[in-house]
């Protein structure tokens, strides 16, 4: 097993060239999968016998919630990588990913509120799961605020990495909060490892939508990282050549 890919990943130039090839493709695949999954879910999946048509917001809510958590997990891993190996790409990743994650958490919160009104009869409950997504949203905003406030780039990198790693502690709390506090919220409706409790033709579009969201976010993140790389590496020869040859 070679570790070359890991070292390559640390080089902004290599990542820029690699991601230029893939970003658009990944984004388009994501867009397509999202449209198929959400379209299938909203238009053709069977009606739920308990919740009727309202359950269909699940095709937006669940992918956003899954991504909000996954993005944070990836931030934590990147933070760890930066603290241990000082890899240059890690803070670029954190900076690019944090706003995307914040948006996902916001979508999950909003769609959850809209879903909660017809099912629970209230926009908001102080349920552990909802609250921890709210906390997740605040954590994202904290990382964004930190990076915008600290002017010294090295310090901002270090600080964002540390907060990301600390925030990882919050993820298990989100994950297991459903069991810790027995509340109104239904147990997690989506799991890859367990047999799905919903029928196949409800579950499959959800799976496609989740995969679509992952690809969308990956594509978006790559684009954001590319511009961040150009900004940070603006003094290097390859960026100068690139801008001279291709324009901005």
């Amino acid at each position: 097993m070679s570790w070359i890919w890991f070292h390559k990943l640390g080089s902004p130039k290599w990542f820029y060239q690699w991601s230029s090839k893939w970003a658009t493709a990944v984004f388009l695949i994501g867009l397509l999968a999202t449209l198929i999954g959400v379209g299938w879910g909203l238009g053709f999946a069977p009606t739920d016998y308990q919740q009727g048509e309202t359950y269909r917001i699940i095709y937006l809510h669940v992918p956003a919630a899954v991504l909000a958590e996954s993005c944070y997990f990836s931030l934590g891993v990147a933070g760890f990588v930066y603290l241990v190996w000082q890899m240059k790409m890690a803070p670029i990743f954190i900076k690019s990913m944090a706003p995307i994650g914040a948006a996902m958490a916001a979508i999950a919160l909003l769609s959850g509120a809209i879903w909660g009104k017809p099912t629970w009869g209230t926009w908001w409950v102080w349920d552990a799961r909802l609250t921890s997504v709210l906390v997740l949203f605040i954590l994202y905003m904290g990382i964004i605020a930190l990076q915008n406030t600290l002017e010294d780039v090295t310090l901002a990198n270090q600080a964002a990495a540390i907060v990301s790693v600390l925030g990882l502690i919050n993820l298990p709390i989100i994950k297991y909060s459903v069991n810790w506090w027995n509340t109104l919220h239904q147990p997690a409706s989506f799991s890859l490892t367990k047999k799905p409790t919903m029928p196949m033709d409800m579950w499959l579009p959800l799976l496609i939508a989740v995969i679509g969201f992952y690809c969308l976010v990956a594509g978006l993140a790559m684009w954001r990282m590319q511009s961040e790389i150009l900004l940070r590496e603006r003094r290097t020869q390859w960026v100068k050549e690139k801008v001279m040859n291709d324009g901005v």
Binding site: V135, I138, L139, M141, G142, A145, L146, T149, L150, D152, L155, A159, I162, V163, L166, G167, I169, N170, I173
Partner: peptide, 27 residues
């Protein structure tokens, strides 16, 4: 203490520090 160290170089760091650290106090 982590938050205090994160914002030590900022003149107006108090609000940022509260925003960053208070969520970790929730548990």
């Amino acid at each position: 203490s982590i938050g205090a160290a994160l914002t030590v170089s900022l003149k107006q760091g108090a609000m940022l520090m509260v925003l960053l650290i208070l969520p970790f106090y929730f548990p």
